[in-house]
Design a protein around this nucleic acid. Structure first.
Length: 594
RNA sequence: GGGGCAAUGGUGUAAUUGGUAGCACGACAGAUUCUGAUUCUGUUAGUUGGGGUUCAAGUCCCUAUUGCCCUACCA
């Protein structure tokens, strides 16, 4: 990602911290930028969403910018929730996003033995103990934010006893929830995380990688800093809610280093504000509900804010990166306008997407004077520009005949003055082909227009302006519309994807919310409108001559309609299915709304 | 009655760390245009309140207010 390795003019707060560290030589020789090491540490308990995408881009981008290392590490410390399926999807997503990790993919579970040794070390130092209180008792004795907790009756048991019990916990001698290993810190700490936090719990469940080797599993706070330490992470970047955990992160590493001649590496945790786009939810739990309740077709439904869903919808890694960049890196917890994402994807696709013509809601046009200027069965071919922003993309042929389809919304029976398209007596340009004038139209018994009759002007061949008349006046046309020829048009299904929710903050429960309120009530029923009868130009049916996108997804701009990509179901079902990635900006609909 | 963090146009974010409040998205107006797209130009609008230090404060100090996070054997 060349754009991200250039240092921007202004530096966000994390870059400033790293700059200062490099200058002071905190992690190595002063000035050595290659010491920077970051990581992305997902728990494999769900699919990655757009918020994770930003986190990946941030941590990877930092490592790339400084010429350091980036790790992909699964934080698989809870066998009850984690599955291989999620590991696989996350690896695919991170790769697609463009992050390149150093060496192999890492797993916290690979470090379990080391964690266990360090835990024994803490017990020996009198910094940890096995607690046999029930979960209820522990909760009771923890106190609350204003009241201090009380010490466990097991807090001061001899180290040998804890060591022995800990070994038995590991060996599977106890039931789930029967005892835990706790750090001995301070039951009166105003920071609840420091009130003798649990380091290990008994879980007699099968782990997706270690199987039934272990009967104890480390808690996040105990494990996470150690994982970072083992991998030599310098800057451990996470979201704001872990701010209160940082003292514990530091405490555990300091505890291990206490009395140790060769201290283990002590990374720096830095918290930033997570990405919170409007009209989107990013809670894994709620995303899973949408899938489980069948509101969407799956985790990769093009309406979903998952990385896989957005990929299927046609977003590019570049556009996600641009969005992440545009939202910035701060500690301010705000909402990010989803319009920024839409602008980012339009920005990229406008430069990169080949243009095609596709009529989503077709109505037939008959050129009534086609026979007067030659054979009425003849087919003419025109050159159409593939991408006005990229001359190298070249041109393609589009065929024209006396029967065409145009967009239903491009014709009005009784159009207002500012309507620059087709209507009785009005002339428009058919892009790359001819200027046509509407002479008549046919309606069915339901009042729907079924056929539009036009004459074409042979002097406008190719869509060019006709020569000036005898007085030197140049005839002008206000509108240009897209079309496909009926003789070679291909049928396609088009899924018009829109925002999944109707309100900016779907997960925010209103103050006066009725009993049983759910974010589901904010679902947009029109988030996916399936159009079965679209007619598209033949060039969309074949991949010949097409530029290849790096990820193999075929993306296009349908002229005047928006950006679309071929859905992955297309190949499977043997027909053309397109997903709408984004609309074009549309000042006409805004005009109408006035 | 506790602790932690944050506050700059409508939204998000900058400000050489005390020296002209800038950028992006949006909105609005216009120009260009074989996409009502793109592109270009212009307009709009901001330092949470109150004190203080200073020649000078978004930035430093005091204070108030508002919002978020924290009481899993989740991460």
């Amino acid at each position: 990602m060349p754009d991200d390795t250039n240092e921007p003019a202004s530096r966000h707060f994390i870059e400033q911290i790293i700059d200062a560290d490099i200058a002071s030589g905190k992690w190595g020789q002063p000035g050595d930028r290659s010491v920077v090491a970051t990581r992305f540490p997902p728990e494999p308990n769900g699919y990655l969403h757009i918020g994770h995408a930003k986190a990946v881009n941030l941590s990877y981008g930092l490592a790339a910018q400084f010429g350091g290392r980036f790790m992909l590490r699964f934080d698989d410390t809870n066998p009850a929730k984690e599955e291989q399926e999620y590991v696989d999807s996350i690896i695919e997503d991170v790769r697609w996003l463009g992050a390149k990790w150093a060496g192999e993919v890492r797993f916290a579970s690979d470090y379990f033995e080391q964690f266990y040794e360090w835990a024994q070390d803490l017990i020996k130092k009198g910094l940890a103990y096995v607690d046999e209180q029930s979960p209820e008792q522990m909760k009771q004795n923890r106190g609350d934010v204003t009241k201090p907790g009380v010490n466990s009756p097991f807090r001061d048991r001899p180290a040998e006893e804890s060591l022995d019990l800990f070994a038995k916990m590991k060996a599977g001698a106890f039931k789930d929830g029967s005892m835990v290993l706790r750090a001995k810190i301070d039951m009166a700490s105003p920071n609840m995380n420091l009130r003798d936090p649990v380091m290990y719990r008994v879980v007699n469940a099968k782990h997706h990688r270690t199987g039934s080797t272990w009967h104890i599993y480390p808690m996040y706070d105990w494990a996470h800093g150690l994982e970072d330490s083992i991998e030599g992470i310098t800057h451990s970047i996470c979201t704001l809610e872990f701010e209160n955990h940082r003292p514990l992160y530091d405490w555990f590493i300091d505890a291990i280093n206490k009395g140790r001649s060769e201290p283990i590496h002590h990374p720096q945790q830095i918290e930033f504000s997570r990405l919170e786009p409007t009209y989107i939810i990013t809670s894994k739990r709620n995303l899973k509900l949408l899938v489980d309740d069948g509101h969407v077709m799956g985790w990769d439904d093009p309406r979903m804010p998952t990385v896989s869903g957005m990929r299927r919808r046609g977003f590019t890694p570049e556009s996600l990166r641009a969005f992440a960049k545009a939202t910035g890196v701060t500690k301010f917890k705000g909402a990010h306008d989803i319009g920024l994402l839409e602008a980012a994807v339009r920005d990229h696709l406008n430069i990169a997407a080949p243009r095609r013509m596709a009529v989503l809601d077709p109505v037939k046009v008959v050129i009534t004077n086609w026979g007067e200027h030659g054979d009425s069965d003849r087919i003419e071919e025109f050159d159409a520009i593939n991408n006005p922003n990229d001359e190298a993309a070249g041109t393609r042929k589009v065929a024209f005949s006396c029967e065409l389809y145009i967009e239903r919304e491009d014709f009005m029976e009784d159009p207002p003055k500012k309507f620059f398209r087709l209507g009785p007596g009005r002339e428009v340009r058919l892009r790359y082909a001819y200027w046509v004038t509407c002479t008549d139209f046919v309606k069915d018994s339901g009042g729907n227009v079924t056929e539009i009759h036009c004459t074409y002007d042979p002097a406008t061949k190719g869509g060019e302006n006709p020569p000036p008349d005898a007085d030197g006046n140049v005839r002008k046309v206000k509108g240009t519309i897209h079309w496909v020829s009926a003789h070679d048009a291909i049928d396609a299904e088009v899924r018009q994807i829109d925002r999944l929710f109707t309100v900016p903050h779907p997960a925010r429960e209103p103050k006066d919310a009725p009993e049983g309120w759910s974010f589901m009530q904010n679902l947009n029923p029109d988030a996916m409108t399936v159009i079965g009868g679209a007619k598209v130009e033949p060039a969309l049916a074949s991949t010949e001559g097409e530029p290849t996108w790096p990820d193999g997804i075929r993306r296009f701009q349908f002229e005047r309609m928006g950006y679309f990509c071929v859905d992955r179901d297309s190949a499977k079902e043997g027909r053309l299915i397109f997903n709408r990635t984004a609309t074009l900006r549309d000042s006409w609909s805004k005009e109408q709304g006035k």
